[in-house]
Design a protein around this nucleic acid. Structure first.
Lengths: 243, 243
DNA sequence: CCCCCTATTGACCCAAAGGACAACTGCCTT
DNA sequence: AAGGCAGTTGTCCTTTGGGTCAATAGGGGG
């Protein structure tokens, strides 16, 4: 029961290309990493994933994976990770990846049904946790979900990076005004709080709109909401923005 | 290994009250439901939970739990659910609760380490998935997390219900204007899109502000964002609001 | 038939936002 | 010392947003 490590319950006469059309993501533009110390598992996963059109990179250890050339740019990625490995385990890799800020969707595969590990992995954000022998459909489905998640994360990332960059252009004073503007306060009220006159606030406001590239107060508020909601999980976007 | 079902690794001489101060939620105001077909488990969990100050209600089956008197108002709640039970299983109860819209944080407890079940439970949103014999600290920690989640959910719920109620006051036309206003369009532009004159939009706008109880456009935009982001997981809040 | 709600529009007026031009101050770097 | 940036403030003028009072028109329900 460990011969192939990958079980094909639905093995039909259908050629590989027939399955490719089912993948929502354009083949060849997605990379799937496989980290497993078992060569036979790497080989069968590699073949399966390539057959549906994914770019595949296999590694025999967490160390090898971490040392991979980081040239892959903005293509959707997903990681199939073995839980039990000599040296750094899959769970360790998951947490260290998370701590280092490198968020990549992870699909775990394991030969030993360990509830504690699976729960821990899922709590930390694993896409799925599959037990060997692995069902082809389940794996492909999980990988696909992982890739979808990655695509979404990248989209959000692009927006957030841009927003933060624009926010960075603001001077400290402008940031204060920004926070109050998106609260809905009038220039006069803001002036009162900051101890200046209305005219000054108007100037700040104009600069804010230009630097943030906002076409209206509504847009500015939306930006503030996004900036505030991603910094941490709590409330008070305006507060957070001010620092 | 099944005598008590609840293991006390850290059994010290410390009296129960000493532990109560560790609970972030005011004791007596939180209800924990226990659904387990094993009487001994129910009994020990009941005692443990009461010792730290929770209100506890035990049930011997999913059916009994679903038939419980729904008089509990707005107190934080959490459910400790056994996976394996005759009749409706814990997982079944979880999904049916989810489908019926009754979201209550669930901490699973199980005597059989079943990876598939645990992963499924976690994917559906379980707070935790503990295996018997259950560690006291783990259980209390999980319950506490569940209660915290419930508190947050209730807060969000209150806000959202209120927002939806206010949105419901708007006439279809006002809803259209609302969607365009929060986009940042000028009255003139909105008038152009809707084929009316600016004056009319002003009137709608004023009514919208009054009905939505918004003090400024900024507040209105925030409301739109919240309304849009909770309807579904996708984008385009304005679109959603208009329906 | 009358009343109410929704949608519409008009004139008039005031407050607020925002652009154009100009100027002054303090701090820091070259 | 000179130049640049951040922060200020002023005046003048235009565009918008918003409130008041008033009026019209169509669709329903009583």
């Amino acid at each position: 029961m460990r011969m192939s490590a990958v079980r094909s319950e639905t093995r039909t006469a259908a050629p590989a290309p027939a399955r490719m059309v089912e993948r929502p993501h354009p083949p060849g533009t997605c990379t799937v990493f496989v980290v497993d110390d078992d060569p036979s598992v790497r080989k069968s996963l590699d073949r399966l994933l390539r057959s549906v059109g994914y770019q595949v990179q296999t590694y025999d250890s967490a160390r090898a994976f971490l040392g991979r050339p980081q040239l892959a740019g903005d293509t959707p990625q997903c990681l199939i990770l073995d839980v039990r490995m000599p040296g750094v385990s899959g769970l360790d890799l998951q947490t260290s990846l998370r701590n280092s800020g490198a968020r990549i969707p992870i699909v775990f595969s394991t030969g030993f049904g360990d509830v504690t590990s699976s729960v821990r992995a899922m709590k930390v954000g694993a896409v799925d946790f599959l037990t060997k022998p692995i069902d082809e459909r389940e794996l492909l489905s999980a990988v696909d979900r992982g890739l979808s998640i990655d695509v979404e994360c990248r989209k959000v990332d692009v927006v957030m990076t841009s927003l933060k960059e624009r926010l960075g252009r603001l001077t400290p004073r402008e940031r204060q005004v920004f926070a109050l503007v998106v609260t809905g306060l009038l220039n006069k009220q803001i002036a009162g709080r900051l101890g200046t006159c209305e005219r000054t606030i108007k100037v700040h406001r104009a600069r804010i709109m230009k630097k943030m590239e906002a076409g209206s107060v509504a847009e500015l508020v939306r930006m503030a909401v996004q900036l505030g909601s991603s910094v941490d999980g709590s409330e008070a976007p305006a507060e957070v923005v001010v620092r």
